[in-house]
Amino acid sequence: MTTRKMVFVDTSLCTGCKGCSVACKAWNELPAEKTKLIYGYISQDSTTPTTWTYMSYHEKYENGKMHFLMMKHQCYHCGDPACMKACPVGAISQTDSGYVLINQDKCIGCGYCVANCPWGIPKTDETKNKTYKCTGCIDRVENGLKPACVSTCQPGALQFGDREAMLQTAKARLEEVKKSYPKANLYGENLMGGTTYVYLLLDEPEVYGLPANPTVPSSLTFWKDIIQPYGGWLIPLAGAAAIGSFFSTRLINAASSKSKGGKTHGH
């Protein structure tokens, strides 16, 4: 059994260079996309089937001072992945190291994972009928390399290692950063069963446009743990009742016509 891995995203060191996004495309052979200027440095505001990690920038004004906050977004590789639960064809699996992967051979592009991911990370290519997201560079990691984004990060805002050790590093760094950013917090340590990408944020998650408490949707739990395993039995039950009735009606009718001397119920 392999230990759980972790990528520590220290946004206090991030310079917003988008090198992670480029390295991701290079390693995963994803084509560049035509981007447009959305605001400031923002040229992308969501993942796409061919952009698995992107940068977001947030300007926050406080006491006449501007805080320029930034972070990279990608699949969090949850400990308790909602996408995996939602997938109707078992295309999504989880490794012991904590990676959540879509098997492209099994994926049918139904988009159930897209609708149930609390961050809306996976994206479906409607032409190929396949859904894509960050693989965590499982192909590199399993061969002793760091993920592409981590290995390219110039300011050292991304670190990769065993989860326990990385969490220690993250917590020590948080103590440091809190001195200048009192609202700094770790995002992901315990969310969704503990994520593989854990962030040190300089401000509340909402400031970054992130859900403060992402959860597995209750509709998904209701659907997958109650309706599908138990509800469906109502159908064969109705079928069995019909078959039972087919024979019981005829048996009862035969018995009563015998006793009444050939007189049947007048249908």
């Binding site: 159930y112 609708a115 998904l220 159908i235 109705a238 009606t249």
Partner: peptide
Amino acid sequence: YPIHDICMILATTMVCMHAYLGSFHPG
């Protein structure tokens, strides 16, 4: 998603009953 499944289950259960009652049930 769950609503679609619940309604499918209810409608199909009714179909099982309805199709039988409308054909092979002696009544």
